[in-house]
Design a protein around this nucleic acid. Structure first.
Lengths: 204, 204
DNA sequence: GCTTTTATCTAGACAGTGTCAGGATCAAGA
DNA sequence: TCTTGATCCTGACACTGTCTAGATAAAAGC
C-alpha cells in the first residue's frame, strides 16, 4: 500500500471494480461499442490487467451477464411480491420483466441479443435457468398442469414468455411509441397489463 | 476491362457486390464480428474501396438492413397470400415474420437488435415503416376499427406485434427448445399458430 | 481524333482494439 | 530473511475503421 492516497500497485478488488466498470462502459457505448481497454481505464488500471481476472473480453461480459440475470430476477420478484392472486402475480412478473428491459436496455441486450457472452458458462447457465424457472412456476400456478409435462401448460409458458419478451424488446428499441400517440403515454403499464392478460389461460 | 479474365481495375458494380459480401460476412461472423475489411476482401477489392460507395461501415449496414426489410416483407407476404380468411391471413403474416427471423437470424438481429444501422436514414425508415404498415393493415382487417384512432385497435396491433416478435426473438436465440422436448419438435408451427391465435380479438 | 474531367480503386498511414510475452511489485508463508 | 505466487505494468503484434494521396479508366468536352 501507498500511505499517501496514491494509487497502490495492487488494486484490492479489481475483479469487482472491473464488473462495475464494464457495466458503465456497456451503458455508455452499448454492446457493440464495448471496449476492454475502456473498462481497464475506468478501473484506473493498465490495459492488460483484466487478463488476470477474466480470460478475455468475452469472459468479462459473461460474468456481467450473470450478475445482470440476478438483478433481472430481483426486478421480477419485486413486482411479484407486491401483487395478490395467482393471475395478478403472473402479470406482475411480466411487468418486472419489462421494467428491467426498459430501465437497463444495455444489460437486457447483452442477455438476450448478443453472441459475446458464453452461454455455456456454468454460472451464467445457472442464473439464466433460474429466471426461466421463475416464469414456469408462475405460469404453473395459474394454469394448473405441470408445464414440463402437460402439453397445454407448455404452450401457456411459451405464450407468457413470448408476449412479455416481445413487449420488452420492442419497447426497448423504441418501437412501441405508437402507443403513446394513441393515448397510452400517461401509463403504458395499463397497456402492457392488458396485453399480458390476453394470453393468460381462461379463468375457470 | 481486362480481356483475359483478370480482375479489372474497376469492379463494375461494387456497390451491389459489397451488399452481397456484407450479407455473407454478417451471416458468418454475426453483427458483433462484422468487419468492413472482410467485406472488401470478399468482394476482391482493396480495404478502402467501400468508402466510395458507403460513407462508413454503418452506412453499409444501413443499406443492408434496408434490403433485409424488403425480404422480410416478402417472407410475410408469401405466407399471407397463401392463406384464406382475415384471421388466418393475420396468423400467416406472423408465421412469415417468424420464418424470416429463424431463417435469417443475422439479418433479423441487424434489423431489431443492433445500434449500428442508422435508423434515421430515409430509405431504411421507409421500408421499416412499410413493414409496420403491413401488420397494421392485417390487424385492422380482423379487429375492424382504425388502429391509429381506436384505442382498442391500437392494443390489438401491439398485442399481435409483441407476441410474434417475442416468439421470433426467443426462437432465434434457441430459447424455445423446451417446446421440442414437450412434443412440438415435429411441427413447431402448430405451436406458433396456437400462440398467435391467443391474442387475436374475439370472433364476433 | 485528343484532352480534360470525373468516378473509381489502390497503397500507405494513423489511432485504437484484443491479446500475448516479459518484467516489476508486493503480500504471505517457509 | 528469502522465496513463492498473485497481481499489475510496459511493450509488442496483428487486426480494425478511416483518412490521405496517388493511380487508373471511363466519360465528357472540344
Amino acid at each position: 500500500m501507498n500511505e499517501r492516497g496514491k494509487t497502490p500497485y495492487h488494486h484490492g478488488d479489481l475483479r469487482e471494480a472491473l464488473l462495475v466498470a464494464a457495466e458503465a462502459e456497456l451503458k455508455e457505448k452499448g454492446v457493440e461499442g464495448f471496449t476492454l481497454r475502456g473498462c481497464a481505464k475506468r478501473a484506473g488500471v493498465s490495459h492488460a490487467a483484466p487478463a488476470h481476472h477474466f480470460r478475455d473480453a468475452g469472459a468479462l461480459l459473461t460474468a456481467l451477464a450473470a450478475v445482470a440475470f440476478a438483478r433481472f430476477m430481483a426486478a421480477m420478484e419485486a413486482r411479484r411480491s407486491a401483487a395478490a392472486g395467482r393471475r395478478e402475480r403472473l402479470v406482475a412478473l411480466g411487468l418486472g420483466y419489462i421494467d428491467f428491459a426498459t430501465s437497463e436496455p444495455a444489460l437486457f441486450r447483452l442477455m438476450f441479443a448478443s453472441d459475446r457472452p458464453d452461454f455455456d458458462d456454468p454460472e451464467l447457465h445457472r442464473v439464466a435457468s433460474a429466471s426461466f424457472a421463475m416464469l414456469v412456476e408462475a405460469v404453473a400456478a395459474v394454469s394448473g398442469g405441470d408445464p414440463m409435462q402437460d402439453k397445454a401448460a407448455v404452450l401457456d409458458v411459451a405464450a407468457a414468455w413470448s408476449i412479455v419478451h416481445g413487449i420488452a424488446d420492442l419497447a426497448l428499441s423504441g418501437q412501441l411509441k405508437f402507443l403513446d400517440e394513441a393515448g397510452f403515454a400517461a401509463d403504458r403499464e395499463t397497456a402492457y397489463r392488458d396485453l399480458i392478460r390476453r394470453i393468460l389461460p381462461k379463468e375457470p
